[in-house]
Amino acid sequence: MVALKWCLTLLLWLSITLPAMGWTTEVALSAEVTQRLAVAAQQVETLHSDFVQEKYLSIFEEKLISTGQFYYQKPDQLRWELLEPVGSGFVITGDSGQRWHERIDGSESFKLDQDPAMALIAEQLFAWAKADLAWIKQNYTISVVSEQPIQLKLVPLEAAAQFLSHLMITFNDSDRYVVAVEIHESDGDSTRINFNNSVVNSEINDAIFSDRCLK
């Protein structure tokens, strides 16, 4: 009986610690998971979240923490705004957008086809927001780390591979939106973004996606 008790305790300890040590089992993206994500994504028209970003960069002595807000509306509108420690952000509608910084009045227009860096960022953010697996499959090798909640590991295929090692994306229990993104860079640096207070399908004022000032 004592042996059984020890065995159970060991199993329980292993079940907690091994995943934390990265000893998780990754499996290929199944049709079932794909179907779950696709069905859930279809139900999302708008999404609003607060986020906390933690950066672990070798060029800094300490981790960098920032907070902000994220808005998304189908099919192609997005707002990413950093509130602390420095106010800055951008909105994208279609193939053009505006960006701003707290030290500069007004905002600056950009077109995605003229700004490759912003185009790459927009693609990533839209893919996470939409759970666009078709696009993700074209750019990453996808494996499933966990099915409940769904956690995907994305290893870049081409363009981003020079600076990106992999991404970890965790969905909420209902599979409808992302609750955490981890960006692991090739040089060992990493960034974790936790999305919280997420609201799905609430009405979002159009002004949110048009320019800097929230109306």
Binding site: L57, I59, W80, S88, I121, I183, D189, T191
Partner: peptide, 18 residues
């Protein structure tokens, strides 16, 4: 440069900033 690293653009431009 530090502020830029907080933004999504910073994900890709870190090496250039260094």
């Amino acid at each position: 440069l530090r502020e830029q690293l907080f933004t999504p653009q910073g994900w890709m431009t870190k090496q250039q900033l260094q």
